[in-house]
């Protein structure tokens, strides 16, 4: 599978829009275009294989389902995962002759995408560092009272940071991807230990993504119960995700009603107590 310069440039443009801090804005750029699921759709359209794009996107989405960036520290970069990792994974799957829907195809996609995503943090720090220069321009403008310049500083000048740290790296990596994957194929045959390990890692990595989410939800052992309810619904009963969400909604509704009732009780109870004290 070859990627043309035009396709590579389009992928580069989406990388500019989707990264954190992206030029598509937080909600639409980072949290929409940057998610591997949506990235898979976009890459699938650009590279002309929608199904493969979505399948690779879904596989990577599981790993990065909990990509929270507290205080601007990142462990992976969305532009690299979605617009370098997904295209390269698509090429690799094609090149190895795998089916993107098979467990092997998904595992390969995950190991490729995750590797690229982790290395991509360099791009994040690069963008943020270049932005310091524009902010410097901004401070001077504020001092002089030249407020209109603030818009240029906040919304126009960062394009330069992104051309350097998103557009060019993405375009080159995607364009060079096909020959690179061919090289990897020669040096790492599929039945060797390295490839077996790589595929196994691909099936283990999504556990980290799930665990990061659990870390936020679970503070004590009892908090695991909802997680295992969901797990059992899907694994043992074969209930799909949409149906599981409906069931979850019912439990949440009951929980909310109980909480609200106990709140009303508590406030009513405290009044009663006061009365008794008066007597």
């Amino acid at each position: 599978m070859e990627i043309s310069w035009f396709q590579a440039a389009l992928l580069g443009l989406f990388a500019c829009l989707s990264s954190m801090p992206g030029l598509g804005g937080t909600s639409f750029g980072n949290y929409t275009l940057g998610r591997p699921l949506v990235g898979g759709l976009v890459c699938g359209i650009i590279l002309g294989d929608l199904t493969a794009g979505i399948l690779v996107g879904v596989a990577l989405q599981v790993v990065y389902i909990a990509l929270v960036t507290p205080g601007g520290t990142v462990s992976a970069d969305v532009r690299a995962i979605s617009y370098i990792g997904i295209p390269l994974a698509m090429i690799a799957i094609k090149s190895y002759g795998l089916d993107a829907a098979s467990a092997d195809g998904q595992a390969l996609a995950i190991s490729f995408g995750t590797m690229v995503g982790t290395l991509g943090t360099v791009l994040f720090y690069g963008t943020a560092t270049i932005n310091l220069a524009w902010q410097h321009v901004g401070w001077k403008a504020v001092e002089k009272g030249d407020f209109k310049k603030l818009y240029v500083v906040d919304m126009v000048l960062p394009w330069i940071s992104h051309i350097l740290c998103s557009f060019i790296p993405t375009m080159i990596m995607c364009k060079m991807g096909a020959p690179m994957v061919d090289l990897i194929k020669i040096y790492l045959p599929m039945d060797g230990v390295t490839m077996k390990t790589l595929f196994t890692v691909g099936s283990l990595l999504p556990c980290v993504g799930i665990a990061i989410l659990l870390k936020q939800i679970v503070t004590k052992a009892i908090d695991f119960i909802p997680f295992f309810l969901g797990f059992t619904l899907a694994a043992s009963l074969g209930i799909n995700l949409v149906s599981a969400t409906v069931i979850a909604g019912m439990f949440a509704f009951i929980n909310y009603r109980i909480k609200m009732l106990s709140l009303q009780r508590a406030s009513a109870g405290s009044i009663d107590l006061d009365d008794e004290e008066d007597i």
Binding site: I217, D223, L229, G230, T232, L233, T245, A248
Partner: peptide
């Protein structure tokens, strides 16, 4: 809801 859905996603 998050906990239950994440369980189903994992499975």
């Amino acid at each position: 809801v998050g906990g239950i859905v994440i369980g189903a996603v994992a499975a």
